[in-house]
Amino acid sequence: MKLLLRRGFRRSVVQDRFTCVDAVMFRRVWRGTNETVLALSETEALAYRVRESDSDLSDPFLVDPDRALWQCGGEFLDVAGRLLELPAAPGHSAFEGK
């Protein structure tokens, strides 16, 4: 969790309205891309990357698979690690020409 915070993610607690379960949400929005990790427990988590325009801030649990740039479910440490290992989304590299 500390690594996500050091990488610019903000932490909040959200409730899945469908299951009435609380989750810890880590979200980072940068240059039009929303990256989110939802931790329901140590063993159950969801991580995804979507364009900011395709994200629904009112319900972070709902991700349209046709609009997701990447998504993964599983144990918290695994999905958070996989998200952090993704290459930068197009347009995010400091070395790319403008």
Rank of each mutant, 00 (worst) to 15 (best):
V13W: 04
V13Y: 03
V79Y: 05
V29I: 06
R49P: 04
W30V: 02
A89F: 07
V63L: 04
S53F: 06
G91M: 06
L86D: 07
D56R: 11
L83T: 04
R10E: 02
V24L: 07
L46E: 02
A88P: 13
D56M: 05
R10S: 07
D78A: 15
C72I: 00
F18L: 14
E75V: 15
L3H: 10
T43S: 11
R67G: 03
P90T: 01
L40M: 10
V24N: 07
V29E: 13
P60W: 01
R10M: 01
L83D: 04
E52G: 08
A47V: 06
L77N: 06
A68D: 09
R17Q: 12
C72R: 15
E35T: 01
L84P: 14
W30F: 09
V24H: 05
S58Y: 01
S58I: 01
V79I: 06
V50S: 07
E75R: 15
R11K: 14
V24K: 08
D59Q: 05
R82M: 13
A45E: 05
G32R: 06
S12Y: 01
W70T: 09
D59A: 08
W70C: 10
V29S: 09
S53W: 05
V37W: 03
C72W: 01
R10I: 00
A89M: 10
P87V: 00
R49L: 07
M1W: 01
R28Y: 01
A94H: 14
N34W: 02
D54T: 13
R6N: 09
L38I: 11
Q15S: 03
A47P: 07
S58F: 00
L62K: 06
P60Q: 02
A94N: 06
S58D: 09
S41E: 05
D78S: 15
D64M: 08
V29M: 07
S53P: 02
S12L: 05
V29W: 03
K98V: 15
G81N: 12
R51N: 08
N34H: 08
L38A: 09
A68C: 08
L40N: 06
P60E: 00
R31S: 06
Q71A: 15
D66I: 07
Q71G: 11
V63W: 03
A80E: 01
L40T: 09
L86F: 02
G91N: 08
E42W: 00
V63Y: 02
F18K: 15
H92T: 04
S12N: 10
N34S: 11
A89E: 07
D56V: 10
T19N: 13
A68L: 08
V79K: 03
V79W: 03
L69D: 11
T33F: 01
F9A: 05
D22L: 03
M1R: 11
N34F: 02
V13G: 00
F61Y: 12
V14D: 05
K98G: 14
R51V: 02
L38Y: 06
P87F: 01
F76P: 08
G73P: 00
M1D: 12
F76Y: 11
L5N: 10
R6D: 06
A94K: 10
R51L: 14
D54A: 15
L57D: 11
C20F: 09
D22F: 03
T36P: 00
F18S: 14
G73V: 07
E44G: 00
S53Q: 12
R17I: 01
D54G: 11
L5S: 11
R27Q: 13
A39P: 10
L3T: 12
S55I: 07
